[in-house]
Design a protein around this nucleic acid. Sequence first.
DNA 1: CAAGCTATCAAGCTATCTCTTGAATAGTGC
DNA 2: GCACTATTCAAGAGATAGCTTGATAGCTTG
Lengths: 221, 221
Amino acid sequence: MAARQQKDALFEAIALMGKAFASPVRLELLDLLAQAPRSVEELARASGQSTANTSQHLQALHAAGLVTRAREGTRVRYALAGEEALRLWLALRDTSAARLAEVERAARDYLGDDVEAINRDELIARLARGDVVLVDVRPPQEFAAGHIDGARSIPLAELEQRIAELPPDREIIAYCRGPFCAYAHEAVRVLHTAGRAARRLRDGMPEWQLAENTSAHDKAA
Amino acid sequence: MAARQQKDALFEAIALMGKAFASPVRLELLDLLAQAPRSVEELARASGQSTANTSQHLQALHAAGLVTRAREGTRVRYALAGEEALRLWLALRDTSAARLAEVERAARDYLGDDVEAINRDELIARLARGDVVLVDVRPPQEFAAGHIDGARSIPLAELEQRIAELPPDREIIAYCRGPFCAYAHEAVRVLHTAGRAARRLRDGMPEWQLAENTSAHDKAA
DNA sequence: CAAGCTATCAAGCTATCTCTTGAATAGTGC
DNA sequence: GCACTATTCAAGAGATAGCTTGATAGCTTG
């Protein structure tokens, strides 16, 4: 009976996807793709890797079924392969943060002093009351690829110059790529320095969209 | 600014957990631990690895925060580290099955001819009507470590001898470790050969318990 | 079809991972 | 303390993964 061999083959095949999560470079690529599809070169620049190396890692992710690729003229556009891939990456990220002290520590080091956050439900309530201004501080192309309804785009790099655009009498809520992205933290610090009332949204764009899909699905069911 | 280095350190730390999922042996250990806590030796026997090698992989899983260890006299008992670890493993398994043709193929090869399955909701309804008999065909110690309410334990190896114990007028529902475990498939084949009406539950014990916890949580919220 | 750009391939060097083997350690029972 | 068992440690051989470099292939533009 070849049952043992067949079982081994099954775990071997699953491990192909598992291996995709075993490299920090690939995790960063997944994290970037969670915001917006990108070309190899853009990903290489954003992740600080050589083009060739980035290409190789992207091929590994593609073989693992986690990203899709599409030729677009002279470049190749990679994107996350569906909501499942996003869910898996976020689950790994959150579970590692919950269970590994080292992740927690590294996150604190990177994010700097903690900044007050509000959660999804509170933001929805405040938006309904017209109480707050929601600002997306990510790079413009990520905003273009998808953003929270009602947000306005002010990339972090331009925030200091453009503070005057924001109504002085309302609290400002900044959000960015996710709970482990430093942009929103930094944005709130900049706003506080300018004497504005500001907090950050705990979720980033991907978490927000997932929650949206999930609750829509719940309603349908 | 050391932001790049700090970001790298963060992804590096998350990858520590990712690496845990990169080896077929470790995945099989996780799969076994999802059923019941076990000692190193039991795990080594069940997975077909040497004790030393099993111990090393378990230490890797422990460093990744996915399993807990506890001395029990002369042996060491390893267990999955909470529901989070289980969720992550099941998510990886299911996503890989959905997105990688190779996993699907390997699963079909291992499980053999498909056998009709029923889902959670249907089983709950049928159990309420007293319409069916639910049989847990896993090894006894896994049944002891946790089973679906109302199930009776008949390990697959004993099923053929013990068919007479089962009421002849009711349909039999067999379940085992999960959708990729061959026991329930095999049990249904045995029962059919004996002329009994039988189907398998699509979920295994871990999936069932997760669903239970989730719906309990939903009610609470 | 030649030039220019993006992405991939191929080869090679290192570092890391996996499994084996044999020794060491921790706990139990006498 | 001694024998016994379960687990871990330590070292090493072989395979695999990660990154670099230089060459190659696919598109677009003139």
